[in-house]
């Protein structure tokens, strides 16, 4: 039985008819047309489908779309402002913190969730958060460097 729900995705409002069992990942990809959240496993293990729900990193393959209604959903597509990239996106690019790119959306959003809560994490704190997602290409090292670089830039700006 379809239900009409309102989703707030990247600050935009979408009114959609969805089945109660539809996954948020599928609704975002197939109905809203945002494919930046990737399907890697559908069992909540790989984290390629990570999004921010009310600012917290969650796996969209483990969320029912109906449970996300009227909550703030942020996907990787909502991180940049027009052509202006978020500092994390810029750092991932410049530091070479990605290869195939399939896990990248999820990793960047994990990092955003972390930095919003703790702007000056230690390397171990970054590793602990990234450890919830899998990457097969990069060995994680340059991602960690990129995230720490953004954190220290932000701190430098604050102290200025």
């Amino acid at each position: 039985m379809e239900k009409s729900i309102t989703l707030w995705v990247n600050g935009q409002r979408f009114t959609l008819e969805v089945e109660p069992h539809h996954l948020l990942l599928d609704v975002l990809r197939e109905r809203v047309g945002l494919t930046g959240a990737r399907r890697g496993c559908e069992t909540g293990n790989c984290g390629s489908c990570t999004i921010l729900l009310d600012g917290k990193a969650v796996r969209s393959c483990l969320q029912l779309a109906v449970r996300a209604r009227d909550r703030a959903i942020q996907t990787i597509e909502g991180l940049s402002e027009g052509e202006k990239l978020h500092p994390l996106q810029r750092a991932f690019m410049e530091k070479g913190a990605l290869e195939c790119g399939y896990c990248t959306s999820g990793m960047i959003l994990l990092a955003k969730g972390l930095l919003d809560e703790n702007p000056t994490p230690t390397e171990e704190e970054v590793r602990r958060v990234l450890a919830s997602n899998l990457c097969r290409c990069t060995g994680y090292q340059k991602m960690i460097q990129a995230i720490l670089a953004v954190a220290s830039d932000t701190q430098a700006q604050r102290t200025r």
């Binding site: 494919t35 930046g36 990787i76 597509e77 990239l85 070479g96």
Partner: peptide, 21 residues
């Protein structure tokens, strides 16, 4: 040199299309 890959911007913004897209 240390030069970022050509598709890096597409990848960090989630806009790169894979076959599932």
């Amino acid at each position: 040199k240390q030069i970022p890959r050509m598709d890096a911007a597409e990848k960090v913004t989630g806009r790169l299309r894979y076959v599932a897209d």
